[in-house]
Every structure is written in C-alpha cells, then in structure tokens.
Computed example of a mutant assay.
Amino acid sequence: MKKVLMLFLMSTVTALVQSQEDGPAKKGEFNLTASVHNQWYWRGYAVGPDPIIAAQASYSYGGLEIGTWNGYGLAGIWKDTDVYVSYTTKFGLSFAFWDIFNYSDYTASDGYEAYGNHSQANYFNYLGEGTRHFFDLSVGYTIPKTNLNIFLATLVAGRDRNPDNSNRYSTYIKASYNFTAGKDISVMPYVSYGFALNSDNGGTFWQWTDKAVANANSSGINEIGVSIAKAIHITEKYKVKASAGLVASPINYSTTGLFGITLF
C-alpha cells in the first residue's frame, strides 16, 4: 500500500513540476456541481436502492484537482462521502486516488437488509477490521485525436478483503467512446471487465447479486452499456444536462436503466 501511494505521489509531483515548466502559473479555481439520479450505479454494482442527490466540490490548479463527492439517498438509506485527488496531463493521461466511505443503513430497504446498518460506522477507522472505507487508485488515458478512453482502477486497501482479511485488489478496466449525435447530444457506449489480483475464494468487489456471489467467478464482464446525454436549455443563460441509458452487468446477471440530471 505504501509503495503504491508513494508511486502515485511521485507521479503527481513530477507532472506538477512539468506543468510549471511548460508555461506560466495558472490561476486556481473552485467548482461545485449537483445532480440527481434514479439510483447510484458504480462499476457494474448497484449500490443504492433509492433515488439519490449528489454534490461534488473541488479546487483545481492546472491539472491538479482536490475535492469531495457526496451522495445521499432520498429515502435516507444510501449515504456515501468521498475525498479524492487527481491530476490530468495535457497528453490525455490522468491519475486519481479516492477514499470512498459508505455509511448506509441498508436494513431500511426490502431486499437489501443483508448488507446491514452502517449508519454508526467510525469514519476514522481507515484500515482496521470492519472499516467502511476503500481506497481506489486509477489511471485513465484518452487516445490522441480520438474520443476513446481507457480507464484502469484497483482497490488498493480497505474493505475489499478475502475471508482471511487479506486484500483482494479488485481491479476494473473500462473502454468508452464518446461522440456527438446532433446539437447538444452526446452518446457514449462502454464496456468494462472486472477481476481480482488476489482472490482466495473466486470473488471480487464488483459482484453484488446473490447469484453472482454464490458463483464467485473471479473475473467477468462488469458492464455493457450506453449513455445518452443532452443539454436542455431552461433559459438563455441556464441549462441542465440530462442523461439516460441502459447497462447490463453479465457478472451480476442484471440490467439497469439509469437516469440523471446535472443541475449545475
């Protein structure tokens, strides 16, 4: 874990130094976005049973961004608070490290009771037994002169664990392609694959349905999906972004329709 974090930090510092050498210092800026969704779907994993509202606040300086993402289920079931740091280069390469903390009360939802009540989880228990944190290290690359993006992420620490408490290192790779299909409309088909680098029972973090957990495949296709987004002009100066799509998760034997609106 320490070696992985050190490599990430060294890469970020190197990129920052390079950005300063390439030109004058850029002015930092704060940003805030808010959105609503019919449910939260993460890497083939339907983690929330109810509609949610999400907010993201960040500070960026050049390619460096530090921020927090927070999601809350409107029925008071699903709750998630995350912090992250990322760096994007001018060459289309990006790095990110996320601390993801889930403190949901799943007992309040029929069909999700088995996931338990974590509303009293200790936020400061980062790596100990029963932690609700997991730490996600990722790299993404947009191929030059194309809209094809390749994304690779691994859960390097936290609650992604084997029965003997060792880290599974569940890993996720995704390919997506974004293109325009008319005025203010974009389409993004995508496919992802999940596997574990160190699974002693055949499972990965991405498997969440009863059938998937029972079969405990160590790898499989997480997602096959498409998302369509459209900018909707409310007034001359204000517009929202609506998105909708369908995603199937073969590893979970499931399919989900997704809808969301970014308010600002």
Rank of each mutant, 00 (worst) to 15 (best):
L127K: 14
Y238E: 08
V213E: 10
R168P: 00
K27M: 11
Y106S: 09
Y103T: 07
L64P: 02
N167P: 14
P49R: 05
G225T: 00
Q20F: 14
D80W: 09
L127E: 10
V85Q: 15
Y126A: 14
V139L: 11
N165F: 06
S199K: 04
N38T: 03
K2D: 09
T146S: 14
G257E: 15
T142H: 12
V13E: 08
N198Q: 05
H233K: 13
A157T: 06
L258V: 05
I185G: 08
Y41S: 01
G48R: 00
Y45P: 00
L7E: 02
A57V: 06
L152P: 01
Y126D: 06
P250Y: 01
G48Y: 07
G62K: 10
S138Q: 10
G92N: 08
S19N: 11
A57S: 15
H118L: 08
L148H: 02
K239C: 03
S176E: 10
P51Y: 01
R159I: 08
Y41L: 12
W69Y: 15
H37F: 08
N217A: 04
H133R: 13
G194F: 01
L246M: 11
E223D: 14
N147Y: 13
G23C: 07
Y84D: 08
R43E: 00
Y103A: 05
T255D: 12
G44L: 02
L5A: 03
Y59Q: 01
Q120R: 14
G28E: 09
